[in-house]
Design a protein around this nucleic acid. Structure first.
Lengths: 230, 230
DNA sequence: CCTACCGATCGGTAGG
DNA sequence: CCTACCGATCGGTAGG
C-alpha cells in the first residue's frame, strides 16, 4: 500500500505506518512548489554545472545542495552517493546526445539530401549543439571526469559512447570510398571527434565563429572537395 | 657567505650561524646519495605521473611524498604549496615541449626539405612525441589540470602555450595560400591541435598505430593532395 | 628532510 | 528533506 512512495523515493525506506499524507495523483504546485520529483532534476542540473566549472573533486556535495537550496545531507536522499550523482549526470548527457543525433540524421526538413557528405555535416553540427548548446553541461562533464567513475560505471558509459559513435563509421566509410576522405576510417573518426571535443576548451558562444561556421570549417578541414574515382 | 645553501634551498632560511658543514663544489654521492638537488626533480616527476593518473585534486601531497620515499611534510621543503608543485610540472612540460619543437623544425638530418608540408609534418610528429613519449606526463597534466591554477599562474602558462603555437601559424598560412589547406587558418590550428591533444584519451603506444602512422593519418586528414592555383 | 601536530573540510549517516 | 553528527583525510606548519 506504500508502493507509490517507495517507488518514488527508493532510498527513504519509510516504515509502513508512517505513510505520507500527500494525496495520490499529480501533486499541486501550491504547497511549496517544490517537493516534486523535479528536485532530482534540479540536483542533476546543478551538479552538471558545478562539475563542469570546478571539476568533480573540487565540488562538494554541500556546494550542490546549496545551489538548489537544500541542506548538506539532503542530496543523499536522492542519490546514494556522490559517485552515483556523477554517473547520473553522464548517463543523462549521453541519452540526450544520442536522441539529438538521431533526430539530426533523420531530419529531412532542412534538406532531403541523404548523401554521406550531408550526413557528416549533420553529425558534426549535432555534436557541436551537444557540446555548446545552452545548459548542455552534461557531456563536457562526461568527457572530462571519466577518471572519477568506478570501472563498472566507466564500462556502462563506454557502451553509450560506442552507441553514439556507431553512426559515424558508415558515413566515413562512404566518404572514404568516394575519395573525399583519405585517412583511414578508424583513425579519422578518433581524430575528428577529438577535434570537436577539444572545442570545449576554447569555443565561446558569445564571440568568434558561430556553430555553423565552425561546422563549415570542419567540413573544409577534413574532406577533399575533389573526389577521386576508384 | 651562506649564499650557496640559500640559493639551493630558497625556503629553508637558515640562521647565519647554522651554516651547513658540507664542503663547496659538487656534493659526493657517497653521503646518502640523496639530498642532491635531484630530489626536486624526483618530486616533479612523481607529481606529474600521479597528477596524470589520478588528477590533481585526487592526489595528496602524501601520495607524492611516498612515491619518492619522503615523509608527509617534506615536499613543502621543496615547494611552497601543492599549487606551486602543479605549476612547476606544467612549466617544466612547456619548456621541454618548446625545446623539442624547435629542434624538430631545425633538423635537417632527416631531410633538407623546408617546405611547409614537411614543416607541418615535423610539428605534428614532435607534438605526438611530447604527448606520448615515454615518461612525458607533464604536458597531459598541463592540458587537463589548468582549472586548478590561480589566474596569475594560468596567464603565465597561457603565454608559454602561445609561444608553443606560434610556429604553427606561418606554416598553416603557407599551406592555405597554396591550396593544400581549405579551412580558415585560425580555426584550422585550433581544430588540428585539438585532434592531436585528444589523442591523450585514446592512444596507446603499446598497441595500434605507431606515432609515424598517426602522423601520416593526420596529414591525409587535414591536407588536400591537389594544390589549387590562385 | 623528519616528527608531531592543527584546523578545516568532506562524504556520508541516524533519526526524525 | 532537515538536524546533528562522525570518522577520515588533507594541506600546511613549527621546531628541530
Amino acid at each position: 500500500m506504500n508502493t507509490l512512495a517507495l517507488s518514488l523515493h527508493p532510498f527513504a525506506a519509510l516504515p509502513a505506518d508512517a505513510a505520507p499524507k500527500r494525496p495520490r495523483g499529480r501533486p499541486r504546485k501550491t504547497e511549496l512548489e517544490r517537493d516534486d520529483g523535479n528536485r532530482r532534476v534540479d540536483l542533476l542540473a546543478a551538479a552538471a554545472r558545478l562539475f563542469r566549472r570546478q571539476g568533480f573533486d573540487a565540488t562538494s556535495t554541500r556546494d550542490i545542495a546549496a545551489a538548489v537550496g537544500m541542506h548538506s545531507g539532503s542530496p543523499f536522499y536522492h542519490f546514494k552517493s556522490k559517485d552515483a550523482l556523477l554517473y547520473a549526470v553522464m548517463e543523462e548527457g549521453m541519452h540526450s546526445a544520442i536522441a539529438r543525433q538521431r533526430a539530426a540524421l533523420a531530419s529531412e526538413d532542412t534538406s532531403p539530401d541523404q548523401s554521406p557528405w550531408v550526413q557528416l555535416r549533420r553529425l558534426i553540427r549535432s555534436h557541436f549543439d551537444t557540446l555548446h548548446g545552452p545548459g548542455n553541461d552534461f557531456i563536457p562533464v562526461m568527457l572530462y571526469e571519466q577518471r572519477s567513475l568506478s570501472s563498472r560505471q566507466r564500462a556502462a558509459i563506454a557502451q553509450l559512447q560506442a552507441d553514439y559513435e556507431a553512426p559515424w563509421t558508415p558515413v566515413l566509410e562512404a566518404l572514404h570510398a568516394s575519395g573525399h576522405l583519405l585517412a583511414p576510417v578508424k583513425l579519422s573518426r578518433l581524430l575528428i571527434l577529438g577535434a570537436l571535443n577539444w572545442s570545449v576548451q576554447w569555443y565561446d558562444r558569445k564571440k568568434g565563429a558561430s556553430l555553423d561556421e565552425l561546422t563549415d570549417a570542419c567540413m573544409a578541414l577534413f574532406l577533399k572537395p575533389c573526389s577521386v574515382p576508384n
